[in-house]
């Protein structure tokens, strides 16, 4: 594929990132079955799934770009747009819902000045909701990157955010 050949000719950090991705694809034996694993890794490396990255993956796995794009858009955890430095996932699972997840979201919306699925203008936070993070015992819960914060309320939200700013 023309586009990805152009990419592999890039210099500096970009080229190194693509090399890291290629090394991973090689450990998966360029197998089309590993598409989801490869996309996870690509997202870790590049932060989100850019069009040129998707094209590169398609060419390396010998898959049509349509198939790669179809998978990337099907699953919730793949992002085609850039994300903030920290991702906030407010759990809206049932336990959190009945114990006030909506209050947590409202206070975050107000505190950050963005709506769900948006990134703050300083590029620090992306606000999302999660289906259930399985911390039902601590409802309502939210997750900032991989850290789970339990029993959150509007006051605690402000305190938690301060630690990331």
């Amino acid at each position: 594929m023309v586009q990805s050949d152009v990419m592999s000719g890039k210099f500096g950090i970009e080229a190194a990132l693509f090399r890291t991705l290629d090394e991973f694809i090689a450990t998966e034996n360029h197998s089309p079955d590993s598409l989801i694993e490869v996309l996870h890794r690509a997202q870790e490396i590049f932060g989100y799934l850019r069009n040129d990255v998707l094209a590169h993956v398609a060419s390396r796995l010998h898959l049509p770009l349509a198939r790669v794009y179809g998978v990337a858009t099907f699953y919730h955890l793949f992002h085609l747009k850039p994300k903030g430095k920290y991702e906030i996932h407010v759990c809206t699972g049932t336990a959190c819902y009945v114990r006030g997840a909506d209050r947590v979201i409202r206070s975050l919306v107000k505190e950050l000045g963005v709506n769900l699925d948006e990134t703050t203008s300083d590029g620090l936070f992306t606000l999302c909701n999660a289906r259930c993070i399985g911390s039902c015992g601590l409802a309502p819960a939210m997750m900032i990157d991989k850290d789970v914060h339990g029993r959150v309320d509007p006051k605690k939200v402000r305190r938690i955010l301060r630690n990331y700013r």
């Binding site: 809206t92 699972g93 049932t94 336990a95 289906r131 259930c132 399985g134 911390s135 039902c136």
Partner: peptide, 8 residues
Amino acid sequence: DEGDPGAF
């Protein structure tokens, strides 16, 4: 793939 909200 435990997806039901509320099951852990």
